[in-house]
Simulated assay, not measured.
Amino acid sequence: MPLQYGMSLEQTAQAIGLSKGWTCRLRNQFIAGGAIGDKGKSVRGGRHREHFPPA
C-alpha cells in the first residue's frame, strides 16, 4: 500500500487494522521474500504423547 498509494506506515496500519509494529514486521518479511502467514511447522503446542479415548 505504501508503494502503490503513497501511504505512510501509520496509514497502512490503520487501513489493515493492525498496529504499526505488526505492519512493519509484515512489510519486512515481505521484502525479505518470506510468505505472509506461513510460519512453517509449529514447534510449540500440540498433544505430545497424549492418550485419546476410542470415541
Rank of each mutant, 00 (worst) to 15 (best):
L18Q: 08
F52Q: 05
H51D: 11
Y5L: 07
V43G: 08
M1P: 02
Q11W: 01
C24R: 14
D38I: 04
L3I: 08
F52M: 03
H48A: 05
E50H: 13
Q11C: 02
G46W: 09
A32R: 13
H48Q: 06
H51F: 10
G21Y: 07
A13I: 00
Q11V: 04
G40Y: 09
G40W: 08
H48V: 08
R49G: 04
Q4I: 07
H51S: 12
G21Q: 13
G34F: 15
T12E: 03
I16G: 07
P53I: 05
R47H: 10
P54R: 05
T23M: 01
S42K: 15
I16T: 11
F30V: 10
A35P: 03
Q11F: 01
Q14D: 12
G46Q: 10
N28M: 07
N28R: 15
G46V: 07
T23P: 00
E10H: 08
N28I: 03
G37H: 09
F30K: 14
G45S: 03
G37M: 07
A55G: 06
R44L: 11
P53H: 12
L3W: 10
Y5F: 13
I16H: 09
A32H: 11
I16Q: 07
I36C: 03
P54G: 00
P2Y: 02
E50Y: 13
Q4P: 01
E10Y: 06
K39M: 06
K20Q: 13
I36A: 06
D38P: 00
F52R: 11
P53M: 05
L3G: 15
I31Y: 04
L26M: 15
I31W: 02
A35S: 13
C24W: 14
G6D: 13
G33Q: 09
I36F: 08
E10S: 13
G40H: 07
